[in-house]
Design a protein around this nucleic acid. Structure first.
Length: 427
RNA sequence: GGAGUGAUGGCCGAGUAGGUCGAAGGCGCUCGCCUGCUAAGCGAGUAUACGCCCAAAAGGCGUAUCGACGGUUCGAAUCCGUCUCACUCCGCCA
């Protein structure tokens, strides 16, 4: 949520920001109109209330002195009627302002490269060497099927398409990756592990910016104001909702493992095979709550922390800076980490690291005090996937595959797997 | 799921035959005094949000807030209704 006062003071800055993001700058004018109407009604109502308060006191005084106050009472009866009508109006206008405010996207940071679409994103750097195969590399779903570590067909019986069941060493690989990533971030980067609920209420989803605009992308529980979380970002960011932290509490660094549920996945008919695009996947998510002046440095650091996992697993990747046109609803700046998938000969997003500045903090009322007695200020929130586990499995299967169909386990993962290679049962 | 109790300021806790209650008192905190140091003691201060005035800060004015929403009333922390949450007991359960 943007700062309404900042918008009143300098609407052009926000119109420009929205234009850069290819959002409609007229949203600002609509908001300002509603805001002006709200303030007008509010002022009128408050003036009447002031009058009523004074007169009510006068009535009390008169009655105590045994004087007649019926004229005042008759008059205030009318004033109160008018107040009731006005307050209805005020409530509606205020709700309108709030609704508009919740629907306006965040504006890009000045450092974000301009661009129309995904095609204009900027590759910042590459890491690692792509494996050279002496045979045509197989796509990960073929490898998984050959090794019998993911059951694509049977899983459909349980729920439907776009769900899978990991089996045997595939299931263990999922589990190993989750443990490995969590341990890595906790031990090396100072995160605190949080194991959150996978169901969140509407307030939480408004807090992170998933509601009110993106309800269609989530699974909602029937008859309840609850949703399956689309990412652990939701519970982690909301953990301190409506709280005022001390400056000494910052930065808050949270690492959480969760299943993530996305109802939109697959609607475009892309990535119909394999582990890339599913209605449920697991992910280790990193969330940072930081002082405003530190958030951009924290973002760079976050990218490195997520990249460190890929490096530990020796998976080639590149870092992409997202341009203004491809930036999402709530972020001011975003980097994607894309891992190399040899069978598709392409880089695929495996992590997304964003700064939201105070956009989520306003919605979730996340504040801190610089010092005892100081006025509370909104803090800045960031998050990054560290990493998406299904896509990491896919990347390991494809990058570590061998000609006979077996897959080596990255050294860093061997202690967690207990084996250094996954072979076919009949091999 | 059943029964009951409760919800007041950073915390504890008064206040219900409706009016001068943003709300006693205590604790905590801040500043000052006192004190060889600490503690104690003494004094003063100590909520938040929003709107308006002001170029802005300082400041001033106003409104709202005693779980939430709605009602009664000229006027509600106090009366009525609905809801939410917390706690206790019982039942069920991994």
């Amino acid at each position: 949520m943007l700062d309404i006062r900042a918008i009143r003071n300098d609407p052009d800055r926000f119109r420009t920001g929205l234009r850069r993001k290819h959002a409609d700058p007229a949203l600002i004018d609509e908001l300002l109109a509603a805001d002006a109407a709200w303030r007008k009604a509010l002022t009128e109502s408050e003036q009447l209330k002031s009058r009523r308060n004074k007169t009510s006191e006068a009535i009390a005084t008169k009655k105590r002195q045994g004087l007649d106050a019926s004229d005042d009472i008759r008059e205030m009866r009318e004033v109160s009627e008018r107040i009731k009508v006005l307050d209805d109006e005020v409530r509606q206008l205020e709700a309108r302002v709030q609704e508009l405010l919740l629907g306006i996207p965040n504006i890009p940071h000045e450092s974000v490269p301009d661009g129309e679409s995904e095609a204009d994103n900027v590759v910042v750097r590459h890491w690692g060497e792509r494996p050279a195969f002496m045979f045509p590399p197989r796509p990960h779903w073929e490898i998984a099927q050959m090794l019998d570590i993911v059951d694509f067909e049977r899983a459909v019986k349980i729920t439907g398409s776009r769900f899978v069941a990991y089996k045997g060493l595939g299931a263990k690989l999922e589990r190993a990756l989750a443990s490995f990533m969590l341990d890595f971030h906790i031990e090396r980067h100072g995160y605190t592990e949080v194991f959150p609920a996978f169901i969140a209420n509407e307030e939480s989803l408004i807090g992170t910016g998933n509601l009110p605009k993106f309800g269609e992308e989530m699974f909602k529980l029937e008859g309840l104001p609850y949703y399956l979380i689309p990412t652990a970002e939701v519970p982690l960011t909301n953990l301190y909702r409506d709280e005022i932290l001390a400056a000494s509490d910052l930065p808050v660094l949270l690492a959480g493992y969760s299943a993530c549920f996305r109802s939109e996945a697959g609607s475009a008919g892309k990535d119909t095979r394999g582990l890339i695009r599913l209605h449920q996947f697991q992910k280790v998510e990193l969330v940072k709550l930081v002082a405003p002046e530190e958030s951009y440095q924290a973002l760079e650091r976050l990218v490195e922390e997520c990249a460190a996992i890929l490096e530990a697993l020796h998976l080639p990747y590149r870092v992409v800076e997202i341009c203004t046109g491809d930036l999402g609803f709530k972020e001011t700046k975003k980097y994607d980490l894309e891992v190399w998938l040899p069978a598709q000969e392409t880089y695929r997003e495996i992590s997304s690291c964003s700064n939201f500045e105070d956009f989520q903090a306003r919605r979730a009322n996340l504040r801190f005090r610089r010092e005892e007695g100081a006025k509370p200020e909104y803090l800045h929130t960031l998050n990054g996937s560290g990493l998406a586990i299904g896509r990491t499995v896919a990347a390991i299967l494809e990058n570590y595959q061998q000609e006979d169909g077996s897959v080596r386990i990255p050294d860093a993962l061997v202690p967690y797997m207990g084996v250094d290679v996954i072979r076919r049962r009949d091999a």
